[in-house]
Design a protein around this nucleic acid. Structure first.
Length: 226
DNA sequence: GCATTAACCACAG
DNA sequence: CTGTGGTTAATGC
């Protein structure tokens, strides 16, 4: 087991700020930190869930096997918990999580984690806040997914990566075109085409996976208009 | 009908 | 993996 110190962890979650020394000790004795390389599976759908995962560094895609293709549910960046819906509701993972960058994940014993929820209300509250935020965000995405056309969805995705994940107008897109398609529910060809058109219109510029947003107003417009 | 949108296929880097 | 072009089906005006 890798030696680590949860209390001094600079990357701890809002929830864990509320733990007592004793609870930290408990957490420390029942968790491990693991390194993942890009593309490695952190949580696998249909496997037994024995712990809660906390993404400390890096980014990951949350995805599940659909009737025909893989569906990317969300793209997340550290710090965040992974797989809480599965951990509490089901014994078996209902979805997969895969690193899309080099990442570091803490695996925490589920029993210990559950005890913290039972015994520490503030800890539980912060956890609920995170879950609610996620759920609300998904609601907005469902509405977009159902009603926007592909250019609108691509624009929304680019803005989301730019603003929420990278906080920059230029970034290295960690998903392939095919994965972007799986994220917004379209084909890789359509994603490719829309990006090319946006590039021709000087709204964005890209070289392979390096993307620059040149005209954010226009991109927002496309996103809103759907 | 005609135009638009987007999926599927195929082929070339 | 990515970009493009052709083809086709569905939908809207």
């Amino acid at each position: 087991m890798i030696k680590h110190n949860c209390k001094e962890c600079k990357l701890k979650a809002a929830a864990t700020c509320h733990l007592t020394n004793e609870e930290f000790q408990d957490l420390e004795n029942n968790s491990v930190s693991v390194q993942f390389k890009k593309g490695e599976s952190i949580i696998k759908q249909n496997a037994l869930s024995l712990n809660v995962a906390y993404l400390r560094k890096g980014m990951a895609k949350v995805h599940m096997q659909g009737p025909t293709r893989d569906k990317i549910l969300r793209v997340v960046k550290a710090p965040t918990f992974l797989g809480l819906p599965t951990s509490f509701g089901e014994k078996i993972n209902q979805f997969s999580v895969t690193a899309i960058n080099d990442a570091e994940v803490c695996f925490i014993d589920l029993g210990i984690f559950r005890n913290l929820i039972f015994s520490n209300g503030k800890f539980a509250y912060e956890l609920i806040v995170e879950l609610c935020r996620n759920e609300l965000n998904d609601y907005f995405r469902y509405a977009s997914l159902a009603q926007k056309q592909i250019p609108g969805l691509v624009a929304e995705t680019l803005l989301c990566f730019s603003e929420k994940l990278f906080d920059s107008n230029e970034f290295q897109m960690p998903l392939t075109r095919g994965e972007m398609g799986d994220l917004i529910g379209t084909s890789r060809e359509s994603v490719s085409r829309v990006l090319s058109e946006m590039s021709q219109d000087k709204i964005i510029a890209f070289d392979a996976s390096q993307i620059s947003i040149l005209n954010k107003e226009a991109l927002s417009k496309i996103s809103d208009k759907g």
